[in-house]
């Protein structure tokens, strides 16, 4: 009895919480709309009046200047008004519950919440409790999902590779604690790639990694053989403390992406990273700055993708109100 919280009766996106449960046309629609926003190469995304008069609240319970900024920019380019609410430094430190915070902000007539929270399931929780007219976009919850990041990664891959079906994609690093990886794996499989690989030591893999629809590799060089896309994940510094890894040095020795190792991948392989990168921990500078790196493109595509998601979810709302 799984009622899909993020789709309306017509199967349109009313919230954007996770890639799970979405079908290929959903993702392709977002990519196509993003394409229209990002249409002119080399030129800035044009400001459009689609969400004029709408209020979008960035509700960040975890610090993240860069993700918040891209959401803010995307909202402004859609002509929406943006409120930034850093809850880490306001409400919860005064003992207010998440639901109280939410009720207070709703009283300010927000049309959309963009939520980041350290607990998996936080965006679902908020979506379940907001007023019926309000959309929720998950900007990252715990280790669970970061769907806009995954879609912008798909956008980047499509830009470079066109068709998804023949692709082999390797995701390298801390899969267990990565909401980005979970969303990427689901998006890649939904879009029908040939193979998704995850490459990591056992301590950084979830208990049942294979159940996500991936092949598991522990050796970076073997795992990179013949891949079209290499996605490196950021290794959080705190992973060094919990007996998950012996040292940053050994991690780079085994799992750091160098030019030499990248030779194993296909000659036209691209290298991606959700940022911020740790040079010399998971990726060598020569690769990060090299010709195959598309890391900075990911950042600029992120704006168009977030514009697409925002306009789509609020559009589905408009459709509901009409119907």
């Amino acid at each position: 009895m799984k009622h899909d919280l993020q789709l309306n009766q017509a199967g349109e996106l009313r919230h954007f919480l996770t890639i799970e449960g979405l079908r290929r046309p959903h993702l392709e629609q977002i990519l196509d709309i993003a394409e229209s926003f990002a249409a002119l190469p080399g030129r800035q995304v044009k400001k459009v009046p689609l969400l004029r008069g709408r209020i979008i609240t960035n509700l960040f319970f975890e610090n993240s200047t860069r993700t918040r900024t891209t959401f803010e920019l995307a909202a402004k380019l859609l002509s929406a008004d943006v409120i930034n609410f850093n809850v880490g430094v306001s409400a919860t430190s005064k003992g207010e519950t998440l639901l109280d915070t939410l009720r207070n902000l709703e009283a300010m007539h927000s049309d959309m919440f963009v939520v980041r929270h350290s607990h998996s399931g936080a965006a679902h929780f908020i979506a379940r409790h907001v007023n019926p007219g309000v959309s929720v976009i998950n900007a990252g919850d715990g280790w669970h999902a970061h769907p806009t990041q995954a879609v912008l990664d798909m956008f980047t891959i499509r830009k470079h590779k066109g068709d998804f079906t023949p692709l082999r994609v390797a995701i390298v690093g801390d899969i267990q604690h990565s909401r980005v990886a979970r969303s990427q794996i689901m998006a890649l499989n939904t879009l029908g790639v040939t193979e998704v690989r995850v490459i990591a030591p056992c301590t950084l893999l979830p208990a049942e990694a294979r159940s996500l629809g991936v092949h598991v590799y522990h050796d970076l060089e073997t795992g990179l053989e013949e891949v079209d896309v290499v996605i490196m994940l950021r290794l959080q510094r705190e992973r060094m403390d919990g007996a998950l890894l012996p040292s940053a040095h050994e991690y780079f020795q085994l799992y750091g992406l160098t030019e030499k190792r990248l030779q194993r991948a296909r000659p036209d392989a691209i290298v991606m990273h959700p940022g911020p990168i740790n040079r010399g921990v998971e990726i060598a500078s020569e690769v990060a700055d090299g010709s195959r790196s598309v890391i900075l493109q990911q950042v600029s595509y992120g704006i168009a993708v977030r514009m697409a998601v925002m306009s789509l979810t609020l559009g589905a709302r408009a459709g509901e109100q009409r119907g």
Partner: peptide, 10 residues
């Protein structure tokens, strides 16, 4: 710690 925890990131 199983398939659900893996998928939901809990």
């Amino acid at each position: 710690e199983g398939a659900i925890a893996t998928r939901l990131g809990l």
